[in-house]
């Protein structure tokens, strides 16, 4: 026999609890709307020093490292949507993560990309190099990190001397694949040519099962292809002007003049376009990103 007072309360609770929770959710949405509009950099790190966090972690460093790594990824992901973000907490978060657990390889490898990427990251390849260097020191047997370091030098810093040296050092690793040595030689011969870049991204594509990395590699390969194509088209446009006295207004002009067969398209299938100075560029609707940095290897 359930007492009446209890039945009454249960009835009130069955109605009241969902209603109150709905009210709470609505209120939370309002609070969120306000804080998001208010301050973007509201995020705070109580402790910025990895060494300090390590001292305070009471033996749970590796678990804490995982938590900080998750926070770093989430922070990076959240900042992606913030225009002109400086990703100010990215470095401290990665610093704390790798100090807590120096063997968390993933934090070095992805952390370096988050730090270096100009469009989807902090544009700080210098910090990325520091991070991966630390990783190499803590994990001398891991050739991936050395290869990543070579890549950072090559791709983001255009430091081909250090890039070649690093790849060379990596190739000494007994576990390392043979292409590392080849890469070292190639970079020291040709520096940042598009062919070398293409080779690096192809290797990256082949040496990983990680879907994000593969997607990234495919994107970069498409970019490289597009840059190479644009490079050819620009040369043709110069030829065209010498012949006709003005730049072509579209690739159709080049075809009509018999200089090319068919309409060239970028890897995403969009035709290239020309500006009034005869410089080719991607269709504004093309999903392929343009990387200013590609100018550099192109000039080699």
């Amino acid at each position: 026999m359930i007492p009446r007072s209890h039945k009454r309360l249960v009835r009130v609770a069955i109605v009241g609890v969902p209603v109150l929770f709905a009210a709470i959710a609505i209120l939370q949405m309002r609070i969120d709307a306000q804080t998001r509009a208010g301050a973007q950099e509201q995020q705070e790190l109580m402790l910025r020093s990895g060494a300090m966090v390590k001292k305070m972690s009471l033996g749970y460093e590796s678990l804490l490292a995982d938590i900080y790594w998750t926070r770093a990824v989430q922070y990076w992901g959240a900042q992606l949507g913030v225009p002109h973000s400086h990703y100010g907490l990215l470095w401290p978060l990665l610093d704390i993560t790798t100090t807590l657990d120096p063997h968390l390889i993933v934090a070095y490898r992805f952390g370096a990309i988050f730090l270096s990427e100009p469009n989807a990251g902090a544009r700080r390849p210098d910090l990325a190099v520091e991070l991966v260097k630390r990783g190499v020191q803590a994990n001398p047997d891991d050739w991936h990190l050395k290869s990543d370091l070579g890549f950072l030098y090559y791709w983001y810093l255009h430091d081909y001397k250090d890039a070649a040296a690093t790849y060379f050092a990596a190739s000494k690793d007994p576990q390392g694949p043979s292409w590392l040595a080849f890469m070292a030689a190639r970079i020291s011969d040709t520096g940042g040519s598009i062919d070398t870049s293409r080779m690096i991204w192809t290797q990256i594509y082949n040496s990983t099962d990680n879907a994000t990395t593969r997607k990234k590699a495919v994107e970069h390969l498409a970019e490289l292809q597009a840059t190479e194509d644009e490079h050819h088209l620009n040369a043709l446009a110069e030829q065209y002007r010498r012949h006709f006295g003005h730049y072509p207004s579209s690739t159709r002009d080049l075809r009509d003049a018999g200089m090319i067969r068919g309409i060239p398209r970028d890897p995403a299938g969009f035709p290239y376009e020309f500006n009034t100075e005869g410089k080719s560029h991607l269709d504004p609707n093309s999903p392929i990103p343009t990387l200013d940095d590609l100018d550099n290897p192109k000039k080699q």
Binding site: M1, I2, P3, R4, S5, H6
Partner: peptide, 21 residues
């Protein structure tokens, strides 16, 4: 006293149900 509840049955004290505080 209403400290525990009966499996079945009822009781009244001075005409009031024991449910009634």
């Amino acid at each position: 006293m209403g400290l525990i509840y009966p499996t079945s049955g009822t009781a009244r004290v001075r005409g009031r149900s024991i449910d009634d505080v």
